[in-house]
Design a protein around this nucleic acid. Structure first.
Lengths: 229, 229
DNA sequence: AATATAGTGTGTATTTTTTACACTAAGTAA
DNA sequence: TTACTTAGTGTAAAAAATACACACTATATT
């Protein structure tokens, strides 16, 4: 976040790439700035790190203030500290990404003053971003692309119960490529971290798919062994 | 680095895990502190980020001041910012690792005041470290373990001309496990990034091995394709 | 000159993993 | 009942990973 610049030699902020999945698209949450510099531009949400906050806490707080959500999966992934990245002084920023399942419409809370509004925008059609936020976003996407191949983070984007097709969809969106249905299922099931439920999808106008759940216990037992996509 | 604490709300430092390979062991460069807190403890080298330095520049400077080396492979990998990680105030630190080929003995330069001395210590036998430096080191090792599987960083630890056995040795030390000689050679050669030289190892009292060189051109052509170990 | 020593360099068979590929089944809507 | 839409499944071929052992070569020693 870039709005407050106390008179310190350097300022410390956190910027977040909040990835959300609504069942259809992969989106990120952007705010439209209401202050100079970059007034009226879209930017990643961020803020100054509080004096008694850990970095992770600070990131969680930013997310909470914007969305009202807690307990979301977040990961710090890089520090951006070019001396000229902020036109008004030195601001070193730590980048976090978060993975969020988007449910109803009531995801967003009232906006703090420095932003006009916030919006979930599909990553396939992003506007120009303020500061070096495009670079921050790019690196964030790169990181989750890599991570989804080795860690069970896809489930963070899905509801607790999901179909294999939905899961595949998440992988395809993150990796940016189509996957073969049969091979995908074979592989994902072979990891042994999914629990098949006695329940079917509801409200669809075609054959309902079986629901699955991510089984944290089984995953814990795998610890050390790498998933590899 | 932890020795200077100006009266700011937060201070920004960089700490470096400098990995070095001397042909036998994997080592890191530690300094023995000459100031409180943690006087007489071993610590990772570090320093405050200068006002007009980029983060990468700052890390390179720290390395240069200690070793006289430039152009070394360094990578930023995590920010440590627990509010209580430094007993005297808030210091957020960015961690970098570097990979260094250790040649003769003249690697080290005169030490700045806050340290008594600096020393290359084998990672198999590290002392207790000041602050949260053990955590920083652990994460650094974890990162290069992961990275060496996908990126040609092993060559940074070796002289320009090296034997396949030496290369295998680096992989074994970083990954912490033995590898099969024939399979290792098959795989590493199949990547097509090594150039076999018309030259043999010298000064050994047994059959001399063929020397190889990492071929950056060939590697550049592979870009996008992943190496996988 | 013969011998001991120490590391180099090589091939194959087996298993495992990855890939490519297409149709029937089930449920809903008209 | 029919049309529509997605769910769910298997196999063969290719590629990659693994396990494994011995002869060669240069030097040092006697």
């Amino acid at each position: 976040m870039e709005q407050i610049l106390p008179h310190l030699d350097s300022v410390f902020s956190i910027d977040c790439v909040l990835f959300g999945f609504d069942g259809k698209e992969l989106k990120i949450l952007l705010i439209e700035r209401n202050e100079e510099p970059f007034k009226d531009w879209w930017a990643l949400p961020g803020n100054i790190v509080g004096p008694d906050e850990s970095l992770d806490q600070s990131a969680s707080r930013i997310l909470y203030e914007l969305t009202g959500l807690r307990g979301i999966y977040m990961e710090q992934y890089y520090a951006f500290g070019d001396p000229h990245r902020h036109p008004q002084g030195r601001v070193i920023t730590l980048a976090y990404y978060a993975l969020i399942r988007l449910g109803g419409d009531k995801e967003l809370r009232p906006i703090s003053s420095y932003a006009k509004r916030a919006n979930w925008l599909p990553i396939t059609d992003l506007p120009k971003l303020a500061f070096d936020h495009q670079k921050i976003y790019d690196k964030g996407l790169e990181k989750i692309k890599r991570r989804i191949k080795h860690q069970p983070i896809a489930f963070e984007l899905l509801p607790e119960k999901f179909t294999l097709t939905q899961l595949q969809h998440v992988y395809e969106l993150v990796l940016g490529k189509k996957l073969d249905k049969r091979n995908f299922r074979k592989k994902i099931v072979s990891f042994g971290v999914l629990k098949e439920l006695d329940e079917k999808q509801k409200g669809v106008s075609y054959r309902a798919a079986t629901l699955y759940r991510f089984d944290k216990r089984k995953y814990a037992k795998l610890f050390g062994k790498e998933i590899s996509f």
